[in-house]
Amino acid sequence: MARERTPASPSQAEPAPTTEPRSLLDNLRSAEHATALLALADLVGATESAGLVLPSLGMEIPVRGRTDFLVQLGGVPPETAARLAVLLRIGVAVVAAEEAAEPATVTHMWAPAVGDLVHDIAADKVGSFHGLDDAGRWLLRPPAGGEPWPVDPSGVRAADVSDRLRAEAALTTARHRAGRVG
Rank of each mutant, 00 (worst) to 15 (best):
L43F: 01
V44I: 02
V44S: 02
V44T: 05
V44Q: 04
G45H: 00
G45R: 00
G45P: 00
A46V: 08
A46S: 12
T47W: 00
T47S: 07
T47Q: 03
E48T: 13
E48W: 10
E48N: 13
S49T: 06
S49L: 06
S49M: 05
A50M: 00
A50G: 00
A50K: 00
G51C: 07
G51M: 06
G51L: 07
G51F: 04
G51T: 06
L52E: 04
V53D: 11
V53K: 05
V53R: 08
V53Q: 09
L54F: 01
P55L: 04
P55M: 03
S56H: 15
S56L: 14
L57Q: 11
L57G: 10
L57H: 09
L57C: 11
L57I: 11
L57W: 07
G58V: 09
G58N: 06
M59A: 11
E60T: 13
I61V: 15
I61K: 14
I61Y: 05
I61L: 13
P62R: 12
P62Y: 09
P62Q: 13
P62K: 12
V63L: 15
V63P: 14
V63I: 15
R64D: 15
G65Y: 09
G65N: 14
G65S: 14
G65V: 12
R66S: 13
R66D: 14
T67E: 09
T67H: 06
T67Q: 09
D68K: 08
D68P: 06
D68N: 14
D68I: 06
V71A: 05
V71R: 04
Q72Y: 10
Q72I: 15
L73G: 10
L73C: 08
G74E: 02
V76K: 03
V76F: 03
P77L: 09
P78G: 03
P78F: 04
P78C: 01
E79T: 09
E79H: 03
T80D: 06
T80H: 04
T80E: 05
A81F: 03
A82Y: 05
R83M: 03
R83H: 05
R83A: 05
